[in-house]
């Protein structure tokens, strides 16, 4: 299926891009992150990230659908 992935902060720097369209066999965010982690060499483990699907926080195991926007949220540092 096709997903749109957005990157922020250190993940953006590591991936070298703001966003990408991904064709993947992964059916949830966990599987998708494993695939992207291997591809881009992300060092942040899943336990330090949160997931957002289509603009809302979501569980790692939530089933993804065609065209979903997926964002992996590193620990935040606003304020």
């Amino acid at each position: 299926m096709n997903y749109r992935v957005l990157y922020f902060a250190s993940l953006r720097d590591r991936a070298g891009m703001d966003a990408e369209q991904i064709n993947s066999l992964a059916t949830d965010a966990r599987g998708l992150y494993h695939e992207l982690r291997a591809r881009h060499g992300f060092t942040l483990g899943e336990e330090r990230l949160r997931v957002a699907i289509n603009g809302a926080f979501a569980p790692w195991g939530q089933t993804l659908h065609e065209g979903d926007e997926v964002v992996f949220i590193p620990p935040v540092s606003g304020g």
Binding site: A9, S10, D13, A52, P74, V76, S77
Partner: peptide, 20 residues
């Protein structure tokens, strides 16, 4: 809130803070 801070240091380095 998903906001991230990138600090630019006097020594020329910079880095995103993921403090947790």
């Amino acid at each position: 809130v998903p906001i991230w801070k990138n600090e630019h240091y006097a020594d020329g380095e910079s880095g995103w803070l993921h403090p947790d």
